[in-house]
Computed example of a mutant assay.
Amino acid sequence: MKNLLTDIAGVRVGHAENTEVASGTTAIIFDQPAVAAIDVRGGGPGTREASTLDVANTVERIDAIALSGGSAFGLDAGGGVQAWLAEQGRGFRVRDAVVPLVPGAIVFDLLNGGNKAWGRFSPYRDLGYAAAATAGTDFALGSVGAGLGATTATFKGGIGSASTVTTNGVKVAAIMVVNAVGSVTVGNGPWFWAAPFEENGEFGGQGLPPAFTPDMLAMRIKGGPAARERENTTIGLVVTDAILNKAQAKRLAMIAQTGFARAIYPVHAPLDGDVLFAAATCEKPIEPLVELTELGMVAANVVARAIASGVYSATALPFPGALPAWKDKFG
């Protein structure tokens, strides 16, 4: 176990970014089509192929997930991932036609100081292709891929990941792009809201403060209390090797998204676009009530840990006035 999404067998992750634009894309590739669903709770989401994942619709399995910066422009990243899969002959077959299925979601990172004057077409389709082509079982965390331009209310955001095993031996792991309107840390200190779920000092081992003051519980959001811009979103994916159908994957996504609330304060705001995908590689059977409940509970903890990991691992952008990274202040 590497404490990464790729601890789930048959899952690979690739990043591609443009440092001048200060944005990028992350592709999650399933070696075999995976059962998938989606849960959306933010007030300003941006998604691709979300309706495909509706439990009432026909398609049960997908080939990949595209996570990207760039706001709505970043939805083009899914086309790049799709192009790479098509070259591999991967996709949903209808007689002689093959259509790779690549749902996706985006974060708003257009105001982070990078040069967004890219001309007629955005770079995200090419970034999606590059991310898919380089996907592997080892991948970087922090300010890479879709997390390159991500920020939070107080510190630089980024990509985080975490994994664990349930009591009955089922694996579950998450990858998160943290670009929240709120804060992932308590007040002005080094403590992460997700501290109770931390394992092996994965995000600094700071624990929680000995007591909570009113100032610690005050709202900290991008732009201050009078914020009006849509600059935010936390998006990600939780994957398990359990055997799930589409409805069960939907329930897993719903339970696991409670991990957002364990790690971000405030969360699911009108200015957020919080989206969580859930996928199952369908290797291990589970009991559909108690064991699915445990899987969701553990998945929520893993999501919270991955969110904290994204901020802990981030590095500041090299632009005037850029938000500091957590490690810049607390080392």
Rank of each mutant, 00 (worst) to 15 (best):
L5G: 01
T6I: 03
A9L: 09
T19H: 14
E20N: 13
G24M: 07
T25M: 06
T26P: 04
I28N: 00
Q32C: 01
Q32L: 09
P33Q: 12
V35C: 12
V35W: 04
A36K: 02
A36V: 02
A36Y: 02
D39A: 14
R41F: 07
T47V: 15
A50H: 14
D54N: 14
N57W: 12
N57P: 00
I65Q: 00
A66E: 04
L67V: 05
G70V: 05
S71Q: 10
F73Y: 15
G74I: 02
L75M: 15
D76I: 00
Q82T: 11
L85K: 00
A86V: 00
E87Q: 14
Q88F: 04
G91S: 06
R93Y: 06
R93W: 05
V94W: 05
V94S: 05
A97S: 11
F108S: 00
G114C: 13
G114K: 09
N115G: 10
W118C: 01
G119W: 04
P123Q: 11
P123L: 12
D126S: 13
D126H: 10
L127G: 02
A135R: 00
A135S: 13
T137H: 05
F139M: 01
G142N: 03
S143I: 08
A146W: 03
L148E: 03
G149L: 06
A150K: 02
K156G: 03
I159F: 04
G169R: 06
A173F: 10
M176A: 14
A180M: 04
G189A: 13
P190H: 09
W193S: 09
W193V: 10
A194I: 13
F197Y: 15
E199C: 12
E202C: 12
Q206F: 15
G207F: 08
P210D: 15
F212R: 08
F212Q: 10
P214H: 08
A226P: 00
R228I: 13
G236I: 13
T240I: 11
N245S: 11
Q248H: 10
R251G: 01
R251Y: 06
I255C: 03
G259W: 09
A263K: 12
P266S: 14
H268A: 15
A269W: 08
A269Q: 14
L271V: 10
G273N: 03
D274C: 10
L276V: 12
A278N: 03
T281R: 02
P285T: 11
E291K: 01
M297S: 14
A299F: 08
A304R: 04
R305H: 13
I307S: 09
I307W: 05
S309W: 02
V311K: 05
S313Q: 14
L317T: 11
P320Q: 08
W326F: 15
W326K: 06
D328A: 15
F330N: 08
F330D: 08
F330S: 09
